[in-house]
């Protein structure tokens, strides 16, 4: 009797999970398999779609493709710069929101706004902010006396990348701040208080108590953000289109162009898959480093 009840409960649990499994298999599982397979083919548009098995030949093309290597480098630069900036700003914001002051509730809502706005739409807004003659960035910077002549932000490789990083940091810092704030609020106040009584200054308390306890939150935030930044598409596509001269083209953008512009379907898949593999490697390294730090 109890055995059959238990079995029924188990059947129920499986049935209740079925819709999620089906939906994810349809939208994520099958397409993921398909893109991996596609990367092993030569699939192009010539008199209809022509596809033939290519083994590793399509993947091997990336090694001699300067544009792929440059996209890989751009992706790495964009990811490392924007994630570092986001984690730094997110930490500052979290420390601020962790204090008690009047209007804290309102500020929490205000700082969440960038996170909720559509990236593609705000990328357009940032292109306008970084406009060379009429933009807000040049106006503010020259009023503050930080620049003498207007900067053509999106027209030069280094400044275009900097503009992308700032826009991305603006958009995603709230997410990092929220994760870190939750971590901060889990730090036991008795420990901090005890350290204060023992004469530890505020920097010492932060460095010796808060920061070590915050490592798991930092890892989660860094991991999430690195993977998302690695696959960034919207912000680059809209703000710079990969320009000037391909200097901000990321792997996502290059894969997109291979598919929809050059109609080189197999190669687009190879680019996307290789990009994903590097991202996985990156994630493994972050997790490894973090766990070593925690045990040390």
């Amino acid at each position: 009797m109890t055995g059959s009840l238990a079995r029924r409960a188990r059947h129920e649990r499986v049935l209740l999970l079925l819709p999620v499994v089906l939906l994810l298999a349809l939208v994520v599982g099958v397409p993921a398999l398909r893109v991996v397979l596609l990367g092993f083919t030569r699939t192009e548009l010539a008199d209809g779609v022509v596809s033939s098995w290519a083994g590793l030949a399509t993947h091997a093309r990336t090694f001699a493709d300067g544009r792929f290597l440059s996209a890989l480098r751009n992706t790495a630069v964009f990811t490392s710069l924007s994630v570092s900036l986001e984690v730094t700003l997110g930490m500052a914001l979290a420390l601020l929101l962790d204090r008690s002051f009047r209007g804290r509730g309102a500020l929490r809502a205000v700082v969440l706004v960038p996170w909720a706005l559509p990236t593609s739409v705000m990328a357009l807004a940032w292109a306008w902010i970084f406009h060379d003659t009429f933009g807000m960035a040049n106006d503010l910077l020259s009023r503050l006396g930080l620049i003498e002549a207007p900067v053509a932000w999106l027209a030069r490789p280094a400044t275009a990348m900097a503009a992308l990083v700032v826009a991305d940091a603006w958009k995603t810092t709230p997410f990092v701040a929220l994760i870190l704030l939750a971590g901060l609020q889990a730090v036991p106040s008795e420990v901090l208080e005890a350290a204060r009584v023992d004469g530890a200054g505020s920097w010492q308390r932060f460095r010796r108590i808060t920061l070590p306890l915050l490592v798991p939150s930092l890892v989660v935030a860094t991991l999430f953000r690195s993977i998302q930044a690695w696959g960034a598409f919207d912000i680059v596509y809209v703000m710079t289109g990969g320009g000037p001269g391909g200097s901000t083209e990321t792997l996502s953008l290059y894969a997109f162009q291979s598919w929809f512009r050059y109609l080189d379907f197999g190669y687009g898949a190879a680019i996307a898959v290789q990009g994903m593999l590097v991202a996985l490697l990156l994630a493994a390294v972050v997790v490894k480093l973090a766990s070593r730090r925690e045990t040390a």
């Binding site: 994520v28 099958v30 993977i227 996502s252 598919w259 994903m276």
Partner: peptide, 10 residues
Amino acid sequence: LFPPILLLFP
């Protein structure tokens, strides 16, 4: 965490 770009073409 799957990047959507990977799934786009399929």
